[in-house]
Design a protein around this nucleic acid. Structure first.
Lengths: 167, 167
DNA sequence: CCCAGCTTGTTTAAACTTCAAGAACAGGGC
DNA sequence: GCCCTGTTCTTGAAGTTTAAACAAGCTGGG
């Protein structure tokens, strides 16, 4: 697409550039697509939906704020605001942690579970249609491997698991 | 990770689920990582940086607002706000389109090009370190193919190119 | 020509995210 | 106990994004 003119800043190789741009296009288009789909069908952005999913899978449908933030890969601050909003919708409620007075549980309410169950099929269809149905099984496998490698490399350090020199 | 309890909403298969979660984790971690890197080194979010890149590659370092919005995969509204901010920084300026009085060009200024050239190497390194250096050549190729397929499927329809039944 | 309908780009307000700061508690050493 | 440091979570303000509405210019059929 771009002409390789001489004032252009140092950049990736031709091949890498193609891959990188395809990545950027695909990921932004997909994120936007899912955000709109969920905003329309479930009245919340994709990230918020993910929070409800995590909670629905946790024992007793509850998680500590920090746990939830980490598994959703967002900051605690962002989570605080998000839970405040979901609480206002009646889909989540908070409860104090008995063993640590600083702690808070975010708990999925029955209404929240309801919304989740009603919107999940549509969301799953959207994910399938945009992603899985377009890829061969081999490509799906490949994508999984690649994304695990990338995620692992960016993970904020985990309980000394990556400090073998410490043992 | 989650226990497969019966109140769980309809979802993807085990394998698909692993792929999908890896995808979500990797893409959000990478986007956050690059956003922070660029916010620190270039005083702008990743998307804004992408706009400067596009402009730098366009003839005469200028693009019509709509063209730029489309190639960056963002809405015109979002672009208006973004360009307003970049203009305030002195990195972009606007100019009227002579042939269409509604039109506006966004033009990369010398200062903008400067910022771009100064921050590009660091950004490229970050992309390499997080993505390319972790993948085999085969995986890079695979990723490119997959992302092109996904992007194509979500592209807001393009000049009848995908309406073969119309010919 | 004329005007309905489309395109271009902006604007407003509300929603969301980030950043920095801070309140409250926990845990350990003295 | 008492301090020190680190953790947990929230807050407020500033910045960004979205959605809807709008002004203005273009365009083509009648």
């Amino acid at each position: 697409m771009g002409s390789m003119n001489s004032r252009e800043p140092q950049w990736l190789s031709e091949d890498e550039q193609r891959v990188w741009r395809a990545y950027l296009h695909a990921t932004t288009l997909l994120e936007d697509h899912l955000d709109r789909q969920l905003q329309r069908d479930a009245k919340m952005p994709h990230v918020y939906f993910g929070l409800l999913v995590q909670l629905s899978e946790a024992p007793r449908r509850r998680l500590r704020m920090t746990e939830l933030a980490m598994s959703a890969k967002i900051t605690r601050s962002r989570l605080s605001h998000a839970i405040a909003r979901l609480e206002k919708n009646g889909w989540v409620r908070r409860e104090d942690c008995p063993s640590d007075k600083r702690g808070q549980f975010a708990i999925l309410t029955d209404e929240g579970l309801d919304v989740l169950e009603k919107s999940a099929p549509g969301h799953v269809s959207a994910v399938r249609a945009a992603l899985f149905e377009r890829l061969t099984p081999q490509q799906q496998k490949s994508l999984g491997e690649i994304m695990m490698i990338v995620a692992e490399g960016l993970q904020p350090k985990e309980a000394g698991a990556d400090l073998p020199w410490l043992r």
